[in-house]
Design a protein around this nucleic acid. Sequence first.
RNA 1: GGCGACGUAGCCAAGCGGUAAGGCACGAGUCUGCAAAACUCCCAUUCAUCAGUUCGAUUCUGAUCGUCGCCU
Length: 295
Amino acid sequence: MKKLISIIGLTSSGKSSLGLAMAKKFNGEIVSADSRQVYKGLDYCSGKVTKDEMKDVSHHLIDVANLGEQFSLYDFQKMAYDAIDDIIKRNKVPFLVGGTGLYSRSVVEGYNLSESEPNQALRRQYEGLTLEELQKICGEKNIDVSGEQTKRRLIRCLEKNSACKIPNKPKYDVLQIGISWSREDIYKRIEIRLRERMPNMLAEIKNLLANGADRNFLKLLGLEAKFVVRYLDGEFDDFDQFFDELFKEERHFAKRQQTWYNKEKNVVWINASENSLEEIEVTATKLIKEFLKQN
RNA sequence: GGCGACGUAGCCAAGCGGUAAGGCACGAGUCUGCAAAACUCCCAUUCAUCAGUUCGAUUCUGAUCGUCGCCU
């Protein structure tokens, strides 16, 4: 079975740097598993690695969609499979690195996605209904949605005409490494990184808007893009209020990521709060070396 | 020193005699084609303190403490 190394972690945990370091060391290439880094133009706001860093190691699934374009889990999985297979074909080691848990899991566990594509007309049609009304419609169509709790998911069940999941079909033998921090530490790192990126983030969004980017689409992207647009539109009293709100949203996001990762099986977590950067790299190197040796 | 207003969860805040709304934060969780999204749950045996009136007080009365404002 083909081998894949996956690196996961919360926002600002240091995934990208570890991925970069390991890819350099093991003749690897990086496949980003990030739902926002796929967009062109969103560099600082999505926390992409720099162009310089990309010179040393090839990156995939970054800048593969234009702002305004819909990009889905299905698109990601398909492109990620293609990129990974291509890397392997060229005798290099694929590293899947990113914080969109659903995306990386879809590849690691081999989600077997339904044939039913999103149906915008149907979504629009059902959007205004209440949860109860949607449940009733599902009942009439004999779709068992007892486990589903949100309108969005009920609508997806109607799209698929089913609530069933198709069993997974993993394509790769995966070594999954996670970087973990204490809550306090990760919150601190998020704040520091937000401060560092802020001037560039503001400039980036200003520039995008000046070049005709759709502000509503940017707002739909959430977090940085959304809050910076709102700040530029004067929706906050001052910079501090804007910063505090965005920082708060980032903390909430990190918490949600953590909840998602809590259920992740087969991850070797490296505690970054208790180990130096060097120790983390040494540990990761050892793990990868052993993993690549196995048949 | 005098006068007035106010003291309800970490914060904002409603209730003003019948047994503590709501929002935010915090925490926990759900999620296989929007996931940086969309959702769910949890959070004051108690209303500054003490005493009194009352069947019953966070709500009324008094005192004390504290905060703020005004006057001297």
